[in-house]
Amino acid sequence: MSPKWDEQLIVEQLRDNRQREQAFTLLVDHFKEQLYWQIRRMVLSHDDADDVLQNTFLKAWMGLDGFRGEAKLSTWLFRIANNETLNFLERKRQTLSLDDEAAIGVATRLESDPYFDGDETALQLQQAVAQLPEKQRQVFNLKYFEEMKYEDMSALLGTSVGALKASYHHAVRKISVFFHSLD
């Protein structure tokens, strides 16, 4: 994150043709890590996360004139990233058959991933999280790993706090069952 972040100033500069490239550079610098981890927890591999992150910022750049400043920049970017991530997972699901997915397995894929250092428990946790439906997984990641408040999540995802709580509860239940089954 850059040390000086003045959102209002950045928004004004993004609207100015002469300053928008410089302002966009600051925007990328400010949000790249936050968005990367949000994406990475969903797609798991670094290469995939890098692709989705680049596409997210390219979409943001191309759609800059569509940003009217009604939402915060973080909300706007989060939603683009979210959309890109879900589209990516959907495309991947269409290209990989269920058999392929089952044969490879999340744990096996992560074990051979040079950018994953987790121990056996971390692998099992990722395996448990991977079995959740995508939206539930997203809610679980934001709450469990990022410790995001439901109210903030609600603003980002456009979903009510009640629905998010219910979704998280379901996810916790399934992950708990998964670990109990290993005992």
Binding site: H46, Y115, F116, F179
Partner: peptide, 18 residues
Amino acid sequence: EEDYIKQFKPHENPFRTP
């Protein structure tokens, strides 16, 4: 159940970047 699964949360992020 939430307390139960908290024990599996890694202390450090297991994912790395190049």
